[in-house]
Amino acid sequence: MEINSENIRHLAELSDFALSEKEIESLGGDLKNIIKYISELDELDTDGVEPTYQVFEMENVWRPDEIVSQDATREDLLKLTQNEKDNQIKVPRVL
């Protein structure tokens, strides 16, 4: 893929970042080099090979349908935010 400032902006959008013009330029150069490197994988013949997504070797790990103790209470978690109001987390306007 041709990496240009337009698709860098698109990837930044997918990633939920605000990027400065300077960052778009420097990250663009880096991403181009990284993509060039990972594209070397093309050389490897993977015809007929099934993909592997995990190496845990276990499936369907069952446990009783009971809640495993959650260490943190609602109050503990609300304390972590800087903007709590009425037992809820305050954010800027949505629309």
Partner: peptide, 9 residues
């Protein structure tokens, strides 16, 4: 940022 963007790519 590089890793997140490559991941999304």
């Amino acid at each position: 940022k590089r890793r997140i963007m490559i991941g999304n790519f």
